[in-house]
């Protein structure tokens, strides 16, 4: 089984988010980058399936050279090889077309990625890739097992419940917890990752549809009003009469 796992390189979850002075660009200054946490659920599940059933796990990133440390980290966690499409990931449609081109060429059985990236939170790429390839996309999945060599069983979240879906390979799925328990690379993994293949490909011609023209931050709160714990019931009165939310 050939599994393709798409990862994005995103600011660490603890990052303070800032923009350049003109609010036109994200300010990378002092920001640590990590593998998108949602993608890690997809990556570990892919490695678990490989360990149980055999096959290969290829990691794919659409991004610039500064993503390579995190691509190596994915190899250290247990992926076999990696591909980086050398392009700025300008929007979801552009990225989806790059992934679809790589997927078509490599004939993968399963294309996995996180439910969304924690930077742009689009939740768009998986659905677009499925549509571009004409294969099902099961999103957002929190359980993935193989029933036999050609059929997978997934559980996906819907508002207020879950659905059980059985699909034939190939398919696209997006991952969320508790699909797997993300792993920390061990020393042996880190050593072997250095020599695993990382191919750099140039992007296919593709158009972007969404142009990011500016950024802003939420307004700061006006300050907190403290209530005496002895008179805690007063809070309910304030929520009704002052905040008017009850």
């Amino acid at each position: 089984m050939k599994i393709l796992v798409c990862i994005s390189n995103v600011p660490d979850t603890t990052s303070k988010i800032n923009f350049t002075a003109d609010n036109k660009e994200f300010d990378k200054n002092g920001v640590q980058y990590v593998i998108n946490p949602w993608d890690e659920y997809a990556l570990t599940r892919a490695i678990e399936l490989k360990e149980a059933k055999g096959g290969t796990v290829t990691v794919l990133n659409v991004g610039e050279a500064d993503a390579e440390p995190n691509i190596r980290k994915a190899l250290a966690i247990g992926a076999d090889d990696a591909i980086r499409v050398n392009a700025k990931p300008v929007d979801a449609f552009f990225v989806a077309q790059q992934i679809a081109a790589v997927a078509k060429e490599g004939n993968y059985d399963m294309i996995l990625m996180g439910k969304e990236s924690i930077d742009y939170n689009g939740s768009q790429v998986h659905g677009m890739v499925g549509e571009l390839l004409g294969i099902p996309s099961v999103v957002p999945a929190f359980k993935l097992d193989m029933l036999d060599d050609s059929t997978a069983r997934l559980e996906r979240e819907i508002e207020g419940g879950k659905e059980v879906v059985e699909v034939k390979l190939p398919f696209v799925a997006s991952a969320q917890q508790p699909m797997s328990e993300p792993r920390i690379p061990n020393m042996r993994g880190i050593m072997t990752a250095r020599t695993k293949p990382l191919a750099v490909k140039e992007p296919v011609g593709a158009e972007a549809k969404a142009e990011y023209v500016g950024y802003s931050k939420p307004e700061k709160k006006g300050g907190v009003k403290m209530i005496d714990p002895e008179n805690a019931g007063e809070l309910i009165t304030l929520l009704r009469n002052e905040a008017k939310v009850l």
């Binding site: 979801a92 449609f93 768009q124 677009m128 996309s137 979240e157 819907i158």
Partner: peptide, 23 residues
Amino acid sequence: NSNIGAAVGAKLAVRLNGALATN
């Protein structure tokens, strides 16, 4: 921007050659 809306929106963006913004 529900699980259903986001899933369907992404597929329609490809099919109708449209530009999509979620959230």
